[in-house]
C-alpha cells in the first residue's frame, strides 16, 4: 500500500455517500451552476503518472471546488491519498473549509466520480478529517495566483 501523506491524521470515516450509477455531478454542476468549467490545467508534472496512488493524487488537481474555480488540491482540502492497487481501492482523506460547508456532498461525489474513471479503480473511500483545521494558508501558491487573478482577496 502506497501512502502519499500530504497532511496528517486519519480519522474514522463519516457516513459514506453513494454515487448513483451514471451520475456525473461535475457535469451537472457545470451545467446548473457554471462551475468547474474554468478550471486551469493541472500542474505540469516532471514524470508521467506512475502508480495508482500517484495518479489518484494528481487527479485531485483536476477536480474543481464547487465555489472557487481552483482544484481541490490547490485549495488545500486534500490531506492524503492512498491506494491498494491489488484490489483497486483508493482512499482519500479530505477536509472542508467549514464544518457547515454546504457542498460536502458535491465534493465527495466529484472525488468519487473522477477516481472511478481512473483505470484500475474499483472503489473509492472518502474520509472526512478536521485536523489540522483548514485555513487559507493551505491554499497552494498556484491556487493563490489564480484566485488573485480572479480578484478574490485572501485574508491570511
Amino acid at each position: 500500500m502506497t501512502l502519499v501523506q500530504l497532511g496528517r491524521v486519519p480519522s474514522e470515516p463519516e457516513a459514506s455517500v453513494s454515487l448513483e450509477e451514471g451520475m456525473d455531478f461535475s457535469a451537472v454542476l457545470a451545467e446548473t451552476m457554471g462551475v468547474g468549467r474554468a478550471l486551469p490545467p493541472p500542474p505540469e508534472w516532471a514524470e508521467p503518472p506512475a502508480d495508482l496512488a500517484e495518479r489518484a493524487r494528481r487527479a485531485m488537481y483536476e477536480i474543481s471546488d464547487p465555489e472557487f474555480a481552483i482544484s481541490l488540491a490547490d485549495l488545500g482540502l486534500i490531506y492524503g491519498v492512498s491506494a491498494d492497487e491489488t484490489i483497486g481501492v483508493v482512499t482519500v482523506e479530505l477536509t472542508f473549509t467549514a464544518t457547515a460547508c454546504p457542498c460536502t456532498d458535491f465534493i465527495k461525489w466529484d472525488v468519487r466520480d473522477r477516481l472511478l474513471r481512473e483505470p484500475g479503480v474499483e472503489r473509492v473511500d472518502v474520509e472526512v478529517v478536521w485536523d489540522p483545521p483548514w485555513t487559507t494558508a493551505r491554499i497552494s501558491a498556484r491556487g493563490r495566483r489564480i484566485l488573485e487573478d480572479a480578484g478574490i482577496a485572501l485574508i491570511t
Partner: peptide, 14 residues
C-alpha cells in the same frame, strides 16, 4: 478520546 480531539480545533476556530 481522539475522535473528539481531532474535531474540536476546527469547531473552536469557527
Amino acid at each position: 478520546f481522539e475522535p473528539v480531539h481531532y474535531k474540536v480545533s476546527k469547531l473552536l476556530d469557527e
